[in-house]
């Protein structure tokens, strides 16, 4: 178990990554997620082909795996945990806007290398907002 950080707040689970939990993921769950991801990617590409890249781009920020994730979490850990996952999703979605902004600014200059910086922007904004909101007591 590797711990990223922890906040000394009573009753709050510390933040961390548990690699052992990956082994608990079944092949069926992985296949469902792959199918969802592949389907939405194909739909985004087809929509871009038919209605243009701007409309197709909308689907790059489509909640593709959230329904599957929320359903699986509720089944395994209860409704409260599923709602907590959606709360974190808000922060991740704000990070998606930062990803898109960096991509818009840098793609014309640096080509596909811009996507690496856009991913760095997503990570920085998401983690910054998450730990900020948690520190302020806005997130569990």
């Amino acid at each position: 178990m590797s711990r990223l950080s922890s906040l000394p707040r009573l009753g709050r689970e510390p933040v961390g990554l548990s690699l052992e939990k990956i082994r608990e993921v079944s092949l069926r769950e992985t296949a469902v997620r792959f199918a969802f991801g592949a389907l939405v990617s194909a739909v985004a590409a087809l929509v871009a082909l038919r209605f243009g890249p701007h409309v197709g781009g909308l689907f790059l920020a489509f909640p593709a795996i959230l329904p599957a994730s929320l359903t699986l979490i509720e089944k395994k850990e209860g409704n409260e945990k599923a709602r907590a996952d959606a709360e974190g999703g808000i922060v991740g979605a704000i990070g998606l806007a930062a990803f898109a902004l960096v991509a818009i600014l840098l793609l014309p200059r640096t080509g596909s290398a811009a996507l690496l910086l856009a991913l760095v922007a997503w990570t920085a904004v998401t983690l910054g907002l998450y730990f900020g909101a948690r520190g302020a007591g806005l997130l569990r």
Binding site: S18, S41, A100
Partner: peptide
């Protein structure tokens, strides 16, 4: 693998499809 669930939720809204498509 992430905990708590609020932290795990960040990765549910990661730019996975966007990275591949763009």
């Amino acid at each position: 693998s992430a905990r708590p669930k609020t932290f795990s939720g960040l990765f549910s809204a990661a730019p996975s499809i966007a990275l591949a498509s763009l």
